[in-house]
Design a protein around this nucleic acid. Structure first.
Lengths: 241, 241
DNA sequence: GAGTGGTCTAGACCACAAT
DNA sequence: TTGTGGTCTAGACCACTCC
């Protein structure tokens, strides 16, 4: 690995890119500890400060987690972290409850045009399509439709009722797909029939529609999810800084 | 200033806090250049690296802007920066148009209970209350209600029809109040009568409600804003990372 | 006690902007 | 040419964790 080649990019960025690859290709797995800074520096023939800058930036992006005295680890999804990072719905009193799930359907389908668009798929490609109802404090709150490329997640459709409550940690553990970023588009829409019935709302009642595309660490779209939420006692929280 | 007192906080955090104060109290004004790193380091008897770390973090928070070869500047709100940071509505085709505004009313009022709550005001406190309609591509898209403590913005209510399109840069230039953070709560709601009429929607039609509290650099709530948006061709974009 | 990341320093050289 | 921030290095000491 020639890191000292005339630098068209800063050295610490090249180091960062290398680390990113090692995580993406599974050399360093989620939860695993990285070699210590001095070892990495010696291996790559750069100073410890350069390694440190690369690691610090990856930690800021939640790709790594650093613990003083223990080491640097590849970040691992858990229900809690996924909840904090990717679930922005909260009760109006401010509390953040983890929703429970009831699976309505789970099967392999041909990707609809909109799914093809969101996931960058072709005409004949298949997706695992999941529909489920999510309850907050035992009340139906969210109707969720999920589509993910079947090729990426073999065996996902067969889980059926055994689908766990949170999927991102499953994607990571079972298929090595780590969600690193998600882009959401929100709208207020009249409740479609199926959603209204499942949620116990009237047809046409306002629902919050959340259209999310989730990307892996390399920026590839790996899941499309559309949620319809009752907003009686719920809201979506967004912090702008 | 005793920075070398036995460090209960890291040195660079103390330096950062000092810089933050200098911006908050107007020693360093928006748009103005800071002294160069070596000068700051000499003044505070710390190394340039420590100053650098403090400045880098402030730049990451958009409180400072750094330009190689030119210097470090206190960040200044403009229509463009405010648009990018604090306006998350976009057309469904992805374009980001700056909305125009038509002021409906602008006056000093006694703060309603909800406004008191959001802004941390007392019973008798007054707010400047602004209602305006915002157009995107010449179509009514957003009905906006704004409440800000009258004490903080003397003369704001008198602007009336002369209110500029974007307010955050005005707050900064005229009253030295810099918005550094905003927390938004989104809901889907049925259109209230006034909003429906102004927006050309039916009463009860779904609207996206955005309830925003904006804070200054020290975290004080300085503006409360409730927007109701038509979502036919619009959506709210949120990026989770 | 040994090993980890966190902080702080000092100094060199580079890229860029202004003059 | 001068001054700015950006990068890179080398080494010291501290705080924390684990054995």
């Amino acid at each position: 690995m020639e890191l000292n080649a005339p630098g068209f990019r800063p050295l610490y960025r090249q180091v960062q890119e290398l680390f990113r690859q090692r995580i993406a290709d599974g050399t360093w797995r989620p939860g695993q500890a990285l070699p210590a800074e001095p070892r990495l520096a010696a291996e790559l023939n750069v100073s410890q400060g350069t390694v440190r800058k690369a690691l610090d930036e990856l930690a800021a992006q939640s790709i790594l987690v650093r613990h003083q005295g223990r080491g640097t680890f590849v970040a691992e999804h858990t229900e809690e972290t996924a909840m904090f990072r990717f679930f922005r719905l909260a009760a109006d009193d401010g509390s953040r409850l983890l929703p429970t799930s009831r699976v309505l359907s789970c099967a392999v389908e041909r990707a609809a045009p909109r799914a093809q668009d969101r996931l960058g798929l072709g005409q004949g490609d298949a997706v695992v399509a999941i529909r489920r109802l999510r309850l907050l404090a035992d009340r139906p709150a969210i109707y969720e439709f999920i589509a993910a490329p079947a090729e990426l997640f073999p065996g996902l459709a067969e889980l059926g009722d055994d689908l766990p409550n949170t999927l991102y940690d499953l994607y990571q553990r079972r298929w090595g797909v780590t969600i690193g970023r998600a882009v959401e588009r929100l709208k207020a829409v009249p409740a479609p029939l199926a959603e209204a019935e499942a949620l116990g709302a009237g047809p046409g009642d306002p629902l919050l529609e959340i259209d999310r595309v989730a990307q892996d660490l390399e920026g590839r779209a790996v899941e499309w999810r559309v949620s319809h939420c009752r907003c009686d006692t719920l809201h979506y929280e967004s912090v702008l800084e």
